Simulated scan of single mutants.
Amino acid sequence: MTVKYKADDFGLRKLAQSPEMGAATLEAAKLMAGNANAVGDSKYEAESTTVTAGWANEKRAGAVVRESEPHWRDWRDGVLLRVAAAMKVRRK
């Protein structure tokens, strides 16, 4: 039996642009910033933003984590990269 799948582009677009998706991505970014603040010397912050994604390069809800006060040790030690890798392994 062959199952045919056709993506619902309109539905995916609405989901990706929804306020709920913006809230979910911001929550994940805040968690990442908090974890980085706990282990690093820099100060990190999370902020909502619009990202370009999808096959049509659409504007979608997203979030970013950035260093608000950089410290050289965090760059050397790759704090954000380590935090992201740890979160991926723990699935959080």
Rank of each mutant, 00 (worst) to 15 (best):
L26I: 08
V51L: 15
E27K: 14
D41H: 13
A61T: 11
V83F: 01
E27N: 10
F10T: 15
S68N: 07
A63H: 02
R66I: 05
K14G: 07
K59T: 04
S68E: 07
A16S: 15
K88V: 08
V3A: 12
Y44A: 01
A63S: 08
T25F: 12
E67S: 09
A7L: 12
V51T: 13
A53Q: 03
A23I: 05
D77Y: 04
L81I: 05
G34W: 04
R13I: 10
A53G: 03
E47S: 11
D77R: 09
K43R: 14
A63Q: 02
T49A: 10
E58K: 09
L26K: 08
V65E: 02
A46N: 02
R82H: 10
V83H: 02
F10L: 15
A28P: 01
V79P: 00
G22N: 06
A33P: 04
K92N: 14
K6Q: 14
L15T: 14
Q17N: 11
W75Q: 12
D8T: 08
V39W: 01
M1I: 08
W72C: 03
K30C: 05
M87G: 09
E20D: 15
G78E: 08
M1Y: 05
A56P: 00
L81V: 05
G34K: 08
W72N: 10
D9N: 13
L12W: 11
D9H: 14
V79L: 00
W75P: 00
V51M: 15
D41P: 01
E67I: 02
S68W: 06
A29G: 06
P70V: 03
A84M: 12
P70Q: 02
A28I: 10
T52L: 09
L80E: 01
M32A: 15
A24H: 09
G11N: 03
K88H: 12
